[in-house]
Amino acid sequence: MSDVGTLIRHWRRARGLSQLALSAESVVSLRHLSFIETGRASPSRAMVLKLAEVLDVPLRERNSLLLAAGFAPVYRESALDVPEMAAIRAALDAILTHQEPYPALVMDREWNIRRTNAAAARFFGFLQAGHDTAAPGPPNVLRRMFHPDGVRRYVRNWPDVSEALVRRVRREAVGGLADERAQSILREVLAYPGVPASLKSLDATVPTLPVVPIEYARDGREFDYFSTVTTLGTAQDITLQELRIECFFPANEETRRLAYALAESAAS
């Protein structure tokens, strides 16, 4: 079986499609699709891109498919701070600023935190105030939530939140280098002290609650948030497609009041 055939079969199965279903959705004959997957036929560049589009393969992995088929990659990966990204940075900053006084952050596919608004810095600074230690490495959502020196100690419903996060990582990470790195970070955090061994065997396909709130508490103050995750539409750059914008919203009036109080305290 050819490398590209193996990858196409991997993504087809990851998307829960039979050969017949993929054949129908991509308008490719079942016989030709079978030959591609088994290496008896070599797909054209257009065919690789067509199948990748139908399978909703991330741009980074579309480049891998093209390379495996003997073609040059077509999608670039740009640094977020280059001049060409000025409009994107402005859009991200507008979203983050609009979320004030509630936390919001931008993370990549490996759960590294790329940007935050002032509310996020203020809130997590409040949680970590007085501690000389923190989660290791660059800012990362998973490390921050699972490490004993992160915010874990202030999350009242940490068992529910940790379980939801593990399921989410495993559900989203279905292939490719970025997903392998996310899975590697997940294995790292599951080995932290105090993390239940049962989290290692969670089934990502089991349905979860529609929304899992995060209940923080410190110094007599309780913040109950739920979050939404937004992506950039029609992104044609790997960096942009992999960005996730997570915005936190108050689940009750008390959290709303405390968020405004933190903002007013910082302003004064």
Score class of each variant (00 low, 15 high):
165 L>H: 13
15 R>G: 01
15 R>H: 10
130 G>A: 03
172 E>C: 06
186 L>D: 04
18 S>E: 02
195 V>K: 05
109 R>P: 05
143 R>Y: 09
146 F>K: 03
134 A>H: 13
150 G>I: 01
174 V>N: 05
5 G>T: 02
55 L>Y: 12
248 F>N: 08
136 P>A: 01
50 K>L: 10
124 F>R: 08
39 G>D: 02
139 P>V: 04
112 N>H: 14
203 D>N: 15
224 D>V: 14
213 P>M: 02
27 V>N: 15
105 L>H: 11
174 V>H: 10
112 N>R: 11
80 L>K: 07
239 T>D: 01
55 L>H: 09
162 S>G: 15
102 Y>S: 12
229 V>I: 15
134 A>G: 13
41 A>H: 12
187 R>F: 00
31 R>A: 00
77 E>L: 00
93 D>I: 02
250 P>K: 09
161 V>S: 09
101 P>Y: 09
30 L>R: 15
37 E>C: 03
153 R>H: 13
21 A>Y: 00
119 A>L: 02
185 I>G: 03
27 V>Q: 15
219 D>G: 09
27 V>K: 15
257 R>N: 12
2 S>Y: 04
106 V>G: 10
34 S>I: 03
212 V>N: 08
171 R>C: 09
126 F>P: 08
224 D>G: 00
168 R>M: 12
140 N>D: 08
